[in-house]
Simulated scan of single mutants.
Amino acid sequence: MDIRFVDVTVGNVWSSPEKPRDLDAPSLFRPADIKEWLSRLDGDEKGRIDLVGRLETQVLYGEPVWIVGERNGWAEIRVPEQYSHKDESGYPGWIPLEQLTFHPDYHQAWQTEPLAYVTVPFTRLRLEGSESEQSLGFMSKLPWLGEVDGEAIVLTPRGTVGRLPAEDITVARTLPTAGGEVRVATAKRFLGLPYLWGGTSAYGFDCSGLMYRVFESAGIRIPRDAGDQARFGKRVTKEELRPGDLVFFAYNEGKGEIHHVGMYVGEGNFLHSPRTGHPVRIDRLSEENYAREFCLARRYQGNETF
């Protein structure tokens, strides 16, 4: 397998090269116009709903992927940072080849240098020697080279130098583990954000994508999908719930396949990204539908092995 790095703000990972529709075109090039793509989705009655079975997950600028095959300008990839039972080497899917790049300096720096983690919903990356800027979202991360005049100096996937507002990042090789209250506060920053099937970025999350990124920001690695997230961590009862724990819901009145996940925020409430047309919000576990489908809860505290 050959390693490459994501060279667009958000890269959509599809189930096959045939799955994108005409209205998905703005997301398929470099640069990817995610705002225009979302606008097109919202202008189509089934734009977001029909992403089910098409969009698998998303990757962020600078993140690594493994290429396991190529076809007609597409790369078959595995996302090593997103654990999935589907493939032991990482979440599987397809992405346009032009949205990936490789530079030996970046590859080396990614392995050895501290990383600048974006900790705000969005910030701006300014490339040195250019007037162009690029939007970067929550949990994008790039090798950190230093700080000058309140700006973080970072290395980009193409081996060029860029600058980010230092106040928008946290510098660490690995982010320190944060407790449940911190995770809750982070998740609340996305209240009102529209649901996006397959979403793992601040442009839109699905239920497990939101949990994945919030836990990542707290220095805790969890799997990508709800079903996998429910397999690890410490199982706790509803009575033992603490803020920051994950709560899971399943079909067949909680006895079937797990289909949803949220984060307990205290006092019988949980935060989640429900479904298309319903943005990130807080609901009560005692509400009829959720009480009926609640199946288990998990507590992740770091250092999990998958």
Rank of each mutant, 00 (worst) to 15 (best):
V79L: 02
E151C: 07
G162D: 03
R292G: 04
P279M: 09
G192H: 03
P165I: 03
K255L: 12
I77D: 05
P26R: 05
L241E: 03
E151A: 13
F249N: 02
E128C: 10
R78F: 04
R173N: 15
A109Y: 05
W37T: 06
D225I: 00
L38Q: 10
V10Y: 01
L191W: 06
V8S: 04
Y251Q: 10
V261M: 04
R299V: 12
A297D: 06
R21A: 14
L100I: 06
T9E: 15
G277D: 08
R224Y: 01
D2R: 15
T160E: 04
T119Q: 13
R224F: 00
V280D: 02
L127Y: 05
R126A: 11
R78V: 04
E288Q: 10
F215T: 01
F232G: 03
D168I: 05
P121R: 04
E240R: 11
Q108F: 13
R213L: 13
R292S: 05
T276P: 08
F5H: 08
E167L: 07
F122D: 05
E239S: 15
I282S: 03
S201A: 09
V184W: 06
R124P: 02
P157I: 00
P20K: 02
G53D: 07
V182S: 12
G277H: 10
A152C: 10
E36L: 15
P223K: 00
Q99M: 06
Q111S: 14
G146M: 10
E70M: 15
A32Q: 01
E76C: 12
R275V: 14
E304Q: 13
L246F: 11
A218N: 07
T123G: 05
Y117P: 06
Q108S: 14
V8T: 12
T174L: 11
P31H: 05
F138W: 13
A291N: 05
T186N: 04
E133A: 05
V118Y: 06
N269E: 13
V52Y: 11
G302D: 04
F248P: 00
P17Q: 04
Y83C: 00
G254K: 09
F249Y: 08
E216L: 14
Y300D: 03
F248N: 00
Y106N: 01
S217F: 06
L191C: 08
A250N: 09
A152G: 13
T177W: 01
Q111Y: 09
G69K: 13
G180A: 11
Q108C: 09
S140L: 12
I169Q: 02
R231N: 08
R242G: 05
A32R: 01
K86D: 00
D228Y: 00
W197V: 06
L241R: 03
L246D: 08
E45T: 14
E253D: 10
E257K: 11
G256P: 08
